[in-house]
Design a protein around this nucleic acid. Structure first.
Lengths: 238, 238
DNA sequence: CAGTGGTCTAGACCACGTT
DNA sequence: ACGTGGTCTAGACCACTGC
């Protein structure tokens, strides 16, 4: 890990441990540079990381301060990446039932969303995830074989995200999510064990690898009483 | 505007204009530095901005490429900041009806969310926004007088966000949003003109200024058929 | 091995807030 | 006027990719 990342990690730890209280000023950049025996630019790169995570506030002409609204509750925010299995790792028992597993050609909409030709086959996987035996989410995933291969029903029963990261050694880069509310469908009622009048929270996402290739286009449906999405937005710089 | 911001803006324009196609390589950092008559570090800061907006992909040892999935559709993503009025500026006719306007002391929950004492008075504003005369969202906003002052019902009928930015000259920094689905309440049915069985998309948010003070804690309710939230997430660096 | 982006330096000057 | 963070430089070396 590079120096600025180490410094960011160290400062983050000090803030989380309460060495610096919310609202309190951090040492000047020049002093931090001396302390870590590095240059100011490197300190700035470290502070950039903390700033992007809302841990600190920077005031030109005044100083750097621990965000007055800092609370560890924000830890959740950035964690929606590793998929459901990783998110609840250690907190709850996640089990997966594969309802459908098929390799076929994509529809026009799917090929457009995945940015592939309609001649490239895709996995079509429909899964029900349970948290501590309670139905939690229903997900339909479409993944191109040109990006992900050797996916089996066995893998789908566990975590596809960890298979991609740990077995295929591919790095996930970013995700675009659209969140909406919808009425319950017959499948929702059947698998999520909800009522006809219960709302559903739906997340439609395309997830890309670091190299920019899209590897998943999916729709996830949640019971309205078991899940919400937390997002953190910085103001645009431009 | 600083040099790296100008360069980022210029490169962004070139990508959006199609001078560089999706997947195509940009010039090497060294060449860009020569072209803009600056140093490589400055070019890197400019590229950081484009990278954060998913416009480019960087491959160490290989080059910098226009994101293969780049599409201008992503422009929407970062725009949820200026409030509803600004978001639809020029696209639709936004009108606001103030249903309630009051100054009172906050509840325990509100003071906790706003990070203020229960002795600091707050504005309690309940508004119905319409888009081209159609009910769009119902928002209950709580704002501390210690942060925002001189707010009037007159202002609430237009845009509170633009009042804060343009009149009070205060800069908005970040927002934490929780998005969930809910059943329709009597108010939803009455004001949003929806049915009892229609789902509602609810956004609960706290919005902070650049200096870290929270200026709004609000709940916004949308008709399920008129609105969704799009978010873009980069993978965490740590 | 050549070529690319990633990290880092030591120092300079600028912009902004506070006193 | 002073102190702070913001920007920028010219050059060096490291890390990774691909031929």
């Amino acid at each position: 890990m590079s120096l600025y990342q180490e410094i960011a990690k160290h400062l983050r730890q000090k803030i989380e441990d309460g060495n610096y209280q919310p609202g309190e000023a951090l040492p000047r950049q020049a002093d931090l540079a001396s302390e870590y025996n590095t240059s100011r630019v490197t300190i700035q790169k470290a502070l950039d990381m903390l700033f992007n995570d809302n841990l600190i506030i920077r005031k030109q002409g005044s100083g750097t301060f621990v965000s007055p609204t800092y609370s560890s509750a924000l830890d959740i925010i950035s964690s929606q990446y590793g998929g459901t299995t990783q998110l609840f790792s250690g907190k709850a028992d996640v089990s997966t039932k594969v309802l459908h597993f098929e390799i076929r050609l994509p529809t026009n909409e799917e090929s457009k969303q995945l940015n592939i030709s309609t001649t490239v086959p895709v996995y079509d996987i429909y899964r029900l995830r349970k948290l501590d035996q309670e139905p939690y989410e229903l997900t339909k995933s479409i993944m191109p074989l040109s990006v992900i291969s050797n996916l089996t029903q066995e893998v789908a029963e566990h975590s596809i995200f960890s298979f991609i990261q740990n077995d295929l050694k591919m790095a996930i880069g970013s995700a675009v999510r659209r969140i909406s509310a919808d009425k319950a469908t017959d499948d929702d009622i059947k698998y999520l064990d909800c009522l006809k009048e219960d709302p559903i929270l739906q997340i439609t996402q395309t997830v890309s690898l670091k190299d920019g290739r899209i590897f998943e286009y999916s729709h996830t449906r949640h019971r309205y009483d078991k899940g919400s999405i937390v997002v953190f937005n910085k103001v645009p710089l431009s």
